[in-house]
Amino acid sequence: MGPLVLNGFISSNWNLLIAVFIGMAFGFLLESSGFSSSRNIAGVFYGYNFVVIRVFFTAVIVAMVGLLYMGYFGWVNLSQIFILPTFLPSMITGAVIMGVGMIIGGFCPGTSFTAITIGKIDALVFAIGLYIGIFFFAEGYPFLEKFYLSANLGHVTLADVTGISLGWWALIFTVFALASFWITASIEKKVRKRIKDYKF
């Protein structure tokens, strides 16, 4: 049955309107969860605010389990779903650079966009930086292309790579997420006691 658009249940014109609504829900949740503040985001890495971990991992495990159920009930044809392709050398490098960019800039792209809407100039400057960074990449692409496309594993899932089924992976992630919620909550409690000039 699903994805409804891909299988002709909804026309592709409606799809763009639906995209706006899905984006709205996404933006609303990012802002209302506190991701429009760079200090909330950076808090993860200094132990005083783990809200990012809570929202992020909860969303991942809900989506993982939900996706498997939707496939099991036949609501969604899982083979039609986009699986991000894997190119380990370039993706690991990119993720390292993104991590450094997140600490220095205090945002990631989506969170900076929601922070712009509530009037944060630092978020706007970060977004301008994103544009410049992508422009640099596009201009430098001829030199990067070989590295960018190296070690293409294709659209592989964890099950393809490890031989362990997706159901097990969903369980592993759920346990991992619950453990991380528990551990980070106790870290947060200790760190917050030490920070005196910031009221939580």
């Binding site: 779903i81 699986i83 991000l84 894997t86 190119f87 990119g94 990631c108 994103l130 990449f137 990067l144």
Partner: peptide, 29 residues
């Protein structure tokens, strides 16, 4: 930070949303 992050998104095939959140949620390695 924005420049670095922007550059990184292209190598990483997406950002925290497209690669990390959506990628992990769909079990992409």
């Amino acid at each position: 930070g924005g420049i670095l992050f922007g550059f990184g998104t292209r190598l990483g095939r997406g950002c925290t949303s497209g690669a990390a959140l959506s990628g992990a949620s769909t079990f992409s390695y």
